[in-house]
């Protein structure tokens, strides 16, 4: 193959964009779960992703656990971190204002990030791909098998959450907290427990995102913040609180980033998603699928 045709190059960018976008979508879903129950934007969301990746590397590569076992252990440990975050950094705040909550989640993210640096140092870690690295070639477009895992996990997470929130009593109780915490309290729902659960769930999904991402893009202690803000961009683009919006927003942000880096300036790769985030915030803060009047009357 002498020259890569423009079309196959475009498709290549689209494929990688959708894959990275699926990661952002999972981060965005994590934001939404906590936001829906508490109206808190958890700025430590990206640290869950980072931790998920690094713990999986530790369990699988360092300790030598089988892939599945390492996966489960990592999810559990990150979930525990999420629950600790709620109990140690959020719940003890006596007069929670938006500003103190923002500062509290920033504090937590610094602690998690710093601890990760203490444990793993600053170098990036690799993780074997879940099913090898033999690329699948499809009309000039190279698809890593891991890409399919990422997309697959996004699908599983989305379907799982939809079923959870619509079909299970626990899920419905959480949704009720989201709609009206006072009413939820009145009908006997333990709101504090639901908040804890939202942090747990959100951390678990973050961990999954991190573990599936690591074989593609490596992982180091410093990745959390950027993943968080891009995931937030995805959540905003899709309309904060909406799960289908998060998926769509994530994929779009991934595409924009991949195409921007591919065809425009590659050094500005990280900036494209953020510029989109700013534009959405400035022009249509309710997102492409949200209802502005509803957003306007939210508490914060």
């Amino acid at each position: 193959m002498e020259t890569i045709s423009a079309a196959s190059q475009l498709f290549q960018f689209i494929v990688t964009g959708l894959t990275v976008g699926a990661i952002y979508a999972m981060v965005a879903i994590g934001f939404n779960i906590i936001y829906n129950v508490t109206e808190i934007i958890n700025l430590a969301q990206g640290e869950f992703v980072m931790l998920g990746g690094l713990i999986m590397v530790f369990m699988h590569v360092t300790v030598g656990l089988p892939m599945i076992l390492a996966f489960v252990t990592a999810v559990l440990l990150v979930t525990l971190t999420g629950m600790l975050l709620d109990r140690l950094a959020i719940k003890p705040i006596r007069q929670p204002s938006v500003m103190t909550l923002i500062i509290a989640t920033i504090a937590a993210s610094i602690v998690i990030k710093g601890t990760a640096m203490l444990i793993w140092g600053k170098s990036p870690y690799d993780l074997p791909a879940f099913s090898g690295r033999t690329p699948i070639e499809l009309g000039g477009v190279i698809i890593q098998p891991q890409y399919l895992w990422v997309i697959g996990f996004l699908v599983v997470v989305t379907i799982g959450l939809t079923l959870f929130f619509n079909r299970t009593i626990l899920g419905k109780a959480m949704a009720a907290c989201a709609d009206n915490p006072d009413a939820a309290r009145l009908v006997g729902i333990n709101v504090q427990y639901m908040v804890l659960l939202s942090f747990a769930l959100s951390a678990a999904i973050g961990a999954i995102a991190g573990m599936t991402l690591t074989p593609i893009a490596l992982m180091d202690y410093d990745r959390g913040a950027m993943l968080a803000i891009k995931g937030f961009g995805a959540a905003i683009l899709g309309g904060l609180g909406s799960f289908s919006g998060a998926v769509l927003g994530g994929l779009l942000i991934g595409l924009i980033e991949s195409l921007g880096a591919g065809f425009l300036l590659s050094g500005y790769k990280d900036a494209y998603a953020l510029i989109v985030l700013l534009l959405v915030l400035f022009l249509r803060p309710s997102g492409i699928m949200g209802n502005f009047e509803v957003t306007k009357f939210k508490r914060f």
Partner: peptide, 8 residues
């Protein structure tokens, strides 16, 4: 890490 803890 210290800053994070202090801030918390």
């Amino acid at each position: 890490v210290v800053y994070g803890l202090v801030l918390m």
